[in-house]
Design a protein around this nucleic acid. Structure first.
Length: 632
DNA sequence: CATGTCTGCCC
DNA sequence: ATTCTGC
DNA sequence: GCAGAATGGGCAGACATG
């Protein structure tokens, strides 16, 4: 497929917000795609170079892209940066630059999906001395062969930030539409000619369907029995090797098909694979896909809750019962075990097995079952010192050297809370009650190494409150609340699992600088540098940046106000007269190697503008120190 | 060989 | 991570 | 109710640079 065809669709996708239209655009791409491009297309349409579960990186960021643009076009880096600031998007910048350039040069070769993919793979594969310039050349080569609009999306793709509003759900729906639309279209049975495409029949419909209609179907199809218990479609009818569904409940069948595709993606974490199977093997092929050991699946995510009442409201089952668990401040891990082979994956599906050899051993000792996938939180815990701050633990995550040493210095414990897979059986469609009790039955606890998460099942608010208090007293972040009757939904931020954390104190801080935004914030200052007051010297000392918590309206207002206070501009960032004071919430004060105050805020966000305050009213460094001291 | 910059990924 | 926005 | 987009601090490692 020509890259230009994909680019046409990118453009359309970027300019429409309608979900249905977007699904239609993507499904057409799938339909028109040659089979050998399906895999690449499935990734590129979401702006990904590779499937998530493969540990492949481009190692290219904005800085290197600027070099590549400069190399490809002969335009000075400074000018590229200027255009970037103008446009608020490096893709838009390269488009303009290439457009101007094109008047002089001729395009060399036509870009195709496979050519783009090939270069992306080469980029990911480059390593060692000279690899950066090699990567830059590879990108420059693509930009050099690209039409202006193609260059725009090449750049955005390499940065893995397409900004066209296409995510998992749309691709899933588009796959259904592209490969199974015949099934959905069959809302009327009468008069329908079975064309050797796809037909199936719904269990309930089977009961209500007229003899006449049923016979008509049977004439043209051959019944095959398949276990389709999960999605409720009880039987498939086969004709000339193709699957066919028939129903008069179009919406329901469509949803079920979405469920089948979703499940295929859930277990494979690879839309390329899903699209290929859908196109080659149909519904049946998708249904046969299942979790594989040592291929991580995406984890289920929680929503936020503001109070215990809200939390119960969100997750409580009919009787108001919920499962409560400690929320540990560590690394979310998914651990796969087959016999004596163990691998540990993070929430982003990165493998960190080598970083935690002691956990690998402990898991082998702790679990007798042959095959399991369990999930838990890996926490820094020193039996002498107690729980370690996340900053300490994080030293171990990407470590490649001195691992042995760190086992001693930063010991860890894993608190398990879910069971995903056991001896050939996926448990993701089972409810939490079953998963948790089964997990309990197969874990042999090892003190300070492999434990079960602190867990309480209750419908009693008072008991819940004291459990929460206990968690906080023990220095945990808060608690999780989960609905015991719900399944595991990989990659989904589900409402039936919530986190509850205490509301933190806030600080009043001065805005002393800012940076121009990108994408939807291109016309506004999108990130604000904050400072506290050193009372001794009367100087403002930086303590970090803040870039969330404001509405669009507030962003615009702040930008207008602050634009008048610009003292100095340097590329995308501006220095500001400290006039505007804001109230800022945060989770924790950390020691910082980067900011003048020596401290930084963890998860800073805007609470409100403090219009009545001046720089004399901002919180002092002394107070920051005091708050820092009180934390542990 | 030491240092600085960049990137990706934990939260 | 947090938050807002729009479907 | 949910996904998507835009943004935070800090860490280790990989390279480039001088």
């Amino acid at each position: 497929m020509d890259y230009s065809e994909l680019v046409k669709s990118y453009k359309k996708l970027e300019s429409t917000q309608s979900t249905l239209e977007k699904t239609e655009i993507i499904s057409k791409l799938f339909i028109n795609s040659p089979k050998e491009d399906l895999d690449t297309l499935a990734h590129l349409i979401r702006g990904k170079a590779f499937s998530e579960w493969k540990n492949l990186d481009l190692g290219i960021g904005k800085k290197l892209i600027i070099k590549a643009i400069s190399k490809a076009t002969g335009i000075k880096e400074e000018k590229v940066k200027k255009e970037w600031k103008n446009k608020g998007d490096l893709g838009d910048a390269v488009e303009v630059i290439v457009k101007n350039k094109k008047q002089q040069t001729l395009t060399t070769k036509k870009l195709t999906l496979s050519l783009v993919q090939e270069n992306l793979e080469k980029i990911a594969g480059a390593e060692g001395s000279g690899s950066q310039s090699k990567k830059i050349s590879l990108i420059a080569e693509l930009i050099g062969s690209a039409e202006p609009e193609e260059a725009k999306y090449i750049v955005r793709t390499v940065l893995e930030n397409l900004r066209i509003g296409v995510g998992e759900g749309l691709v899933r729906d588009a796959i259904v539409k592209a490969f199974f639309s015949e099934l959905i279209g069959l809302s009327e049975l009468d008069g329908y000619e079975i064309t050797g495409q796809q037909v199936g029949i719904d269990k309930q419909l089977l009961g209500s369907i007229s003899e006449y209609r049923l016979n008509k179907v049977k004439e043209k199809t051959e019944l095959i029995e398949i276990d389709l218990s999960d999605d409720g479609i009880s039987k498939l009818w086969k004709k000339e090797g193709a699957d066919v569904f028939i129903t008069d409940r179009k919406k329901e069948i469509e949803d079920r098909l979405k469920g089948i595709v979703q499940h295929a993606y859930d277990v494979s974490t690879d839309f390329g694979e899903v699209a290929e199977v859908a196109s080659k093997k149909g519904v049946q092929g998708l249904r046969e896909m299942d979790i594989e050991l040592f291929r991580p699946i995406r984890v289920m995510l929680a929503q936020k809750s503001d109070s215990m009442e809200d939390a119960f409201e969100a997750v409580g089952s009919e009787e108001g019962l919920a499962a409560l668990e400690y929320k540990y401040d560590g690394i979310r891990v998914q651990i796969h075990k087959e016999g004596s082979d163990v691998k540990i994956f993070t929430r982003r599906l990165e493998e960190i097995t080598d970083q935690f050899p002691e956990i690998v051993n402990a898991i082998k000792d702790s679990i007798d079952e042959e095959e399991v996938i369990v999930e838990g939180e890996l926490v820094g815990f020193d039996p002498q010192k107690g729980y370690l701050p996340f900053q300490k633990l994080s030293k171990r995550i990407k470590r490649k050297y001195n691992i042995r040493e760190m086992i001693e210095k930063i010991p860890v414990t894993v608190y398990l809370f879910d069971l995903i897979y056991c001896n050939g059986n996926s448990l993701i469609r089972q409810n939490l009650r079953i998963r948790w009790s089964k997990l309990n039955s197969l874990i042999n606890k090892i003190d300070n190494s492999v434990e079960l998460a602190s867990h309480l099942e209750t419908s009693d608010l008072d008991k819940a409150q004291s459990f929460y208090q206990k968690a906080l007293d023990e220095n945990q972040e808060g608690i999780m609340l989960k609905n015991l009757s719900k399944r595991y939904k990989p990659g989904s931020r589900v409402g039936y699992m919530v986190k509850l954390k205490p509301v933190m104190e806030t600080l009043d801080l001065a805005i002393i600088g800012a940076e121009w935004g990108e994408g939807r914030r291109r016309d506004w200052l999108g990130s604000y540098k904050l400072a506290c007051m050193n009372k001794e010297t009367g100087e403002l000392k930086s303590i970090g940046k803040m870039a969330t918590g404001f509405t669009d309206e507030q962003l615009e207002e702040l930008t207008n106000k602050l634009e008048d206070m610009i003292i100095q501009e340097d590329g995308r960032s501006v220095k500001l007269k400290p006039k505007v004071i804001v109230e800022v919430a945060y989770e924790e004060i950390q020691e910082s190697p980067k900011y003048e105050s020596g401290y930084a805020l963890r998860f800073p966000r805007l609470v409100a503008e403090r219009e009545t305050l001046g720089t004399g009213d901002v919180d002092t460094l002394d107070r920051i120190r005091e708050l820092y001291g009180k934390q542990s």
